Simulated scan of single mutants.
Amino acid sequence: MNQPLAYIHPQAKIARNVVIEPFSTIHKNVTIDEGTWIGPNVTIFEGARIGKNVKIFPGASISAVPQDLKYKGEETETFIGDNTVVREYVTVSRGTDDRDKTVIGSNCLLMAYVHVAHDCIIGDNCIIANAVQIAGHVTVQDYAIIGGSSAIHQFVKVGAHSMLSGGSLVRKDVPPYTKAAREPLTYCGINSIGLRRRGFSSEKINEIQEIYRYVFLKGLNNSKALDLVELELAPSKERDEIINFIRSSDRGVMKGYSY
Rank of each mutant, 00 (worst) to 15 (best):
V92M: 14
A6I: 06
T31E: 15
P58L: 06
S61W: 01
I190C: 08
L228K: 11
G167M: 08
T43C: 02
A135T: 01
T139A: 00
V85R: 14
V170G: 04
R239H: 08
P184T: 13
R239G: 15
N83Q: 10
L5E: 08
C188E: 12
G199I: 04
I62D: 03
I242L: 11
V65P: 01
F200R: 04
N191Y: 09
E21G: 04
K172A: 03
F45L: 11
G219L: 09
N107F: 12
I205S: 12
G51D: 10
I50E: 06
A181W: 06
G167W: 02
A180C: 13
F200P: 13
V92G: 07
Y71E: 04
G35H: 11
V19L: 10
S202D: 01
D97A: 14
I80Y: 08
Y214P: 03
I8A: 00
A6M: 06
F245S: 01
R49A: 04
F155C: 05
V132P: 03
S258Q: 15
S168Y: 08
I134Y: 10
A6P: 04
P40G: 03
N221S: 06
Q11M: 02
F245V: 01
A160Y: 06
N2L: 15
T178R: 14
L233V: 00
L5T: 08
S162D: 13
V170F: 03
G148M: 03
V140M: 11
D142N: 13
K13C: 11
E21S: 10
P4D: 13
T178P: 12
Q133W: 05
V215N: 06
I44Y: 06
Q209N: 13
P176C: 07
T25M: 11
I145C: 08
I32D: 09
G159S: 03
V158K: 06
Y187A: 01
Y214K: 09
I32Q: 02
K52Y: 11
G47A: 02
D100S: 09
Y214H: 15
N130M: 14
T186V: 14
V18A: 10
S192T: 13
N107H: 14
I242Q: 01
V30C: 00
E203L: 11
H118Q: 11
V90W: 07
S223T: 14
V42T: 04
S202V: 03
M1A: 12
T139K: 12
Q11N: 14
I122W: 11
I205N: 02
Y143E: 12
K13W: 05
T25V: 07
P40A: 09
R99L: 14
E241L: 01
F45R: 05
A117S: 15
Q209K: 15
L5K: 00
S258T: 12
A225T: 05
G95Q: 07
N222K: 05
N41H: 14
I44L: 01
I122A: 08
T36S: 07
L195R: 03
F155W: 13
K28E: 15
N53H: 12
F200S: 08
K255P: 05
A180I: 05
R196F: 01
Y214T: 10
V19W: 04
E88V: 00
T102P: 02
Y89T: 10
Y214S: 12
V229T: 07
D97P: 02
I242K: 09
E74P: 00
D124C: 00
I121V: 13
G81Y: 09
L228N: 05
H161I: 01
R87Q: 04
N83H: 13
K157H: 06
L169A: 10
N29V: 06
Y7M: 15
